[in-house]
Design a protein around this nucleic acid. Structure first.
Lengths: 343, 343
DNA sequence: CTGAAAGCGCTTACAG
DNA sequence: CTGAAAGCGCTTACAG
């Protein structure tokens, strides 16, 4: 491997001068500089990152910590959540010459994430992007205690102390519900996207409830079903709703896959969407396009981009600043399933 | 941050002894060792990876280099290719305390991948797992020239010099085709999974051709269509096939998404599967299960695992060894679409 | 504008 | 079994 010494020798200067020239960190005579860069180019010199990191205390790595990629969080069909997020992150860190260290929880959420803490203690990264639907504040707190910049992506910050970027799930749900109410629906069922311990789920659920309340509609327990990452949970929810004496006229699916389950149920029972059942969902994945589903965007690509941007900004900062909660705007994409669109 | 000096001071020994104890790299008196570990535990000591890497010349990072995650290669719907691969890799590197550096081509395949070469020159990783459907040998050669261990995953090695792990796509296609022939079909169409420049595509196509030939069936140009990552390419292929005077009685889709396109075509035109049209595919994703599709497994999870295992084995080696081409076994999962399964 | 020197936090011969 | 010292490849005061 070619080192700074090789360059210095070949260019007939000291290693300090090579360093100054390469990094532009001190003035170097034009001719000297030229000579140095000629050698650098010729020998394909690139400073050893470990050596550099040791003295600068920077690794130029940022770590993305997520749930296990094999977990339901990432693998439910038709969703490109993960690659969208990656893509967004990649676009910004690439420009700034950062690398991406990928790490995830190994045993579901049981493991006390010793892996991330190990990385922290080894100083393996300069900052972390954390994407955990049910992140406990402990890990974030521990990271921050050690001065490690953290940005939560795809989930809102639990308090004023941690930076986060996400869509406003409460708002989204409120809007979805209002949309249906605006179309004249009063019997509106809701499939909670997942366990209520997840902030996303809680937020979407509350947005739904508040929209009902604000419009003078009383919520009904039997119009609410907790779904999961499988299509079948949507199917199941629909079958429960339509077994009721007074079935809903509209359903809000907690996510697109669940909406597909509802559609499958409708198909199998002859219910017609949107005539017999108006349907609205979240995420606006390719599934929404495929199934002509009205859905609200949750732009993971943008979340990744803004998250990475914010993190990088943090890295450049000396002084602490109050944490930010960045909200990525989303829009309701109206398609055929809600009945708002003329055929 | 706590350093080895802190531990040494606190335990009343020299830093060498701490290092010996921590790494088990030289005998240390039991009582001394105990004292040292007590302090290590108490102070949460973990050696600084940059410092360690500088002297050991190891980073404990392995790099996974892939196409852009936003590209079609990863985002076509219903496919968990990427997360499967990650999961497999993660399982093995995690055990050996390696970290995963994720990097990808930025501008499609045009960029001459300077990013990976930069990482190489900075010595940012100990080895690379490369997953490029149309990898040019140049990049692999350059990596190897610099002594960087490389394993190609999800694609076969181009020559004897590079390690690779993949399924045997030729074999898979041969088997799929033979299966249909065994069911009495003679007019068998084939949707090539993608551009023929990709090895996967070429291999699957050749397997198809050879199976036909070996069974005395002449191939017909009009029974072959080049597909892509979209469902619609399957739809389109089917519509072309069934516009022929003598349409095929069976179709082999190059991948599950394409098969779904074929199914959609069948639905829209009233063709019944498998009665009017036997259908077989590759990949056996969740789509195959959902659409009751006979499909051949291409176990990315296993490919990731074996790839990582092989790479790690390479890292431990001093001497060069002849490259291996590991073939991950796959199986034909028979479902309703091919007509082999009694209803 | 340039160079000699110290030092980042480790590991690893080498001595004892 | 333990410690003093060199050195990994850089950056960064400090002198000149």
């Amino acid at each position: 491997m070619v080192t700074i010494k090789d360059i210095a020798r070949e260019a007939g200067v000291s290693i300090s001068t090579v360093s100054f020239a390469f990094n532009g960190t001190a003035p170097v005579a034009p001719e000297t500089k030229e000579r140095i860069f000629e050698v650098i180019k010729r020998l394909n010199y690139q400073p050893n990152s470990a050596a550099r990191g040791l003295v600068t205390r920077k690794t130029n790595n940022i770590c993305l910590f997520t749930p296990n990629p094999g977990s339901n969080f990432f693998t439910f069909s038709g969703n490109s959540t993960f690659t969208d997020l990656l893509q967004g992150i990649g676009e910004v860190i690439d420009q700034k010459d950062y690398n991406l260290l990928l790490s995830w929880e190994m045993h579901g959420n049981k493991a006390k994430t010793p892996k991330l803490l190990k990385l922290l203690r080894e100083r393996a990264m300069d900052g972390v992007l954390i994407c955990l639907p049910d992140h406990d504040s402990n890990i974030v707190a521990e990271l921050q205690e050690h001065g490690m910049p953290v940005v939560i992506v795809g989930s809102k910050g639990q308090n004023q102390l941690v930076n986060a970027v996400d869509v406003d799930n409460y708002e989204l749900a409120y809007r979805n519900t209002s949309h249906l109410i605006g179309l004249g629906h009063k019997r509106i069922a809701f499939i909670v996207p997942g366990p209520l311990e997840y902030l996303v789920c809680e937020d979407r659920y509350e947005g739904y409830l508040d929209a009902l309340t604000d419009n003078g509609i009383k919520m009904r327990e039997d119009y609410v079903h907790i779904g999961d990452f499988g299509e079948s949970s949507g199917y199941r929810a629909a079958s429960l709703f339509f077994a009721l004496k007074e079935p809903p006229t509209a359903v809000i699916a907690g996510r697109d896959v669940q909406a597909v389950g509802v559609i499958e149920y409708a198909r199998s029972t002859g219910l017609e969407i949107p005539r017999d059942l108006a349907l609205v969902s979240f995420e606006n994945t390719e599934l929404a396009a495929k199934y002509d589903l009205t859905s609200t965007t949750t732009n993971l690509h943008e979340i990744g981009k803004e998250g990475a941007r914010l993190l990088l900004k943090l890295l450049g900062r000396k002084k602490e600043r109050p944490a930010q909660n960045i909200v990525i705007p989303s829009e309701l994409v109206v398609r055929g399933s809600c009945g708002a669109k003329p055929k």
